[in-house]
Design a protein around this nucleic acid. Structure first.
Lengths: 203, 203, 203, 203
DNA sequence: CATGAATGAGGCTTCATTCAT
DNA sequence: AATGAATGAAGCCTCATTCAT
């Protein structure tokens, strides 16, 4: 129940940057697992072994800490978009099924953020980060009609797989591997991203 | 629906049941929009126009109210599974894109529940309801190899579309209609549910 | 050190209005003696024998409680202006030297408010109440040149006597009586309020 | 002013004394504007550009810093009493109406101290300083009966004018000049200080 | 049984102060 | 001796919950 990722020993390190970074890391874990409202700053501080008031000294407020943590998360997530475009689906699949146990302390940033989506401000933040960073990256790969819609349908699938794995923890997805999913994944990607020969048969 | 029992005092009994039902309805809306932690029982009571203490009188605690509300939600969601199997994809699509404005007060129960998924107990509840009610229903339609996995991949897509629409509020999905999505939806359903002629080409 | 005016026994009276009024009374005393910043709401609640959260239930915030308390105070203070104009100086003197021991729990509202004048918002409030209620009332009595200035010089004197008595607690003023001060008071009032025959001799 | 002592390390000693003096000056300003409780030591330190812990190193505690600052203030205020007695009223008037904008950083010490008068200890300090330094100085000028009372009535007026100007910020007084007030001031001084020919007519 | 007044634990945040370096 | 990281005690306020009437 306490100290999920880091140890709870007191640290008198007196190293500002190290403590700040440790708080940020602990915040990512807590916010990701328990949501914004469900996390209290004392538990974050306890994970690091530090007094809660340091959070306010270094970040100003719980909200600012959350923003910094999720911005950093989103940037990390956006890195997957770099690289050869034709291999993007494979990279995305790899990312979403990354070999971390579902009960791991680190979840995908956007899924983590969902847990905080009760708050209107956070929902706006989520919208911007997902749309501007993520969907926009996928959108560039889509050719053919309905490109916007298909880019979002595909993004939604990735989102859904992530949610099913780490939040719902549905049985088969929680334990699967990229290679097991690949055949289906590529065929669906072909349809939604609009591959060469797989354009809609328009029944 | 709420089966008034036999003995006298008809009106008092009526009021009690009506208030109870109204609280439950308000709870579904609030929990769905703001999550478990983000909702407070006073606002639920205010929505109904009664005092918050009635919540404890009728349901015992906030947690029990949540459980009752989400169980009822899950049952309502499961209803979509009833009916001719071959039309299920169409019914699911209709359900997930149902004509409610994104700021509507009623969201899909499972998506609503995501907002509360910071709590371990609630996550278990979510797992059971999604897997036992929903994925199990879809699973029955899947033929061919990897049936479990494909059922979950398809369920994940539905989940993801719902999340993208009502939480992320991604631009194209938020405003789309079932008929616009249908062509893509059916082709993907063909792949994942393993329809008649579209079985995997087995590379 | 604790419970300055009211008793500290718990009260389970369950009388909303009575509790509210008791809190307001205790707030007036505390704010008057210790200033806005120097008062904490727990001590106010303790004076009444009630939980501190009731303050927020009934008044919304410490600041709103302060505003309500000081507005009520100011209205009470303004009452002295009613009555025959030519006897106003006497009534003012009576008010400012009212027979309450300097260590009494009730001080003159404006002097009490001075203790909170570190806060910009409160300073504005004080300005408005003193100028609009008090100085404006005195201003009507002043005839002759420099009427505004003289009204304020006279008001300032009253203010200063109050401060000297109850804050500084200077020795002679703390113990004096209206009749002892009256001769000097009337002569100064004659000069500042601009009596008939006492126009400046312009030496 | 701060008497550098004899031994070596000239520059280090200098810096220390300079910093100490700067902290004291900043403290006078802050305490004067925002009161004791309303001032925090970090803002004092920030004004000087040093770390807050120096305050404790140099002064021991916030309270001791306050005491030192206000003692110094009081001595400065007492300086006005030096000089030819017959010109004292003019000097006092000049002091109280000194050309500083109401939002100036420097206020009259006693008025500044009023803002901290919620604290019993500080109130005692205020009493002693005002009575021993100030009223005592004025008292020496008063002749005739009721000398103590009249000295205090006059002091109270000065106090009140200061309060009205810089705390209440009443309109006419805030902008006036010594020459505008002088006619009234001198006549009142004549009455209260009991000048040459203006002794009370003893009704 | 219903009402709403009252409670107390806990959350965010500030601030004087200490302590390791 | 100086620096600034860290602390812990409050302070305001919210919220689930209880209890007198």
């Amino acid at each position: 129940m306490t100290a999920p990722s880091s140890n709870g020993q007191p640290r008198h390190k007196r190293d500002r940057e190290a403590t700040r970074a440790a708080l940020l890391a602990a915040a990512r874990v807590r916010f990701g697992r328990e949501g914004y409202t469900g996390t209290n700053v004392r538990s974050i501080a306890q994970d690091v072994g530090v007094d809660a008031s340091l959070v306010f000294r270094y970040f100003g407020s719980k909200r600012k800490l959350f923003e910094e943590a999720s911005t950093e998360d989103a940037q990390a997530a956006g890195a997957v978009l770099a690289g050869p475009a034709e291999q993007l689906p494979a990279r995305l699949l790899e990312m979403i099924l990354r070999e971390e146990r579902p009960d791991s302390s680190v979840e995908h940033p956007f899924i983590a953020m969902l847990r905080s989506a009760g708050d209107e401000t956070i929902r706006d933040q989520l919208h911007d980060q997902v749309c501007d960073t993520y969907i926009a990256g996928i959108r560039k790969l889509v050719h053919g009609p309905d490109a916007d819609l298909r880019a979002e349908l595909f993004s939604a699938w990735l989102l859904g797989i992530g949610v099913a794995r780490t939040v719902v923890r549905s049985d088969a997805l929680a334990d699967t591997t990229p290679s097991a999913v690949a055949p289906y994944f590529e065929r669906v990607a072909g349809i939604l991203l609009g591959g060469d020969d797989t354009e809609p048969a328009s029944n």
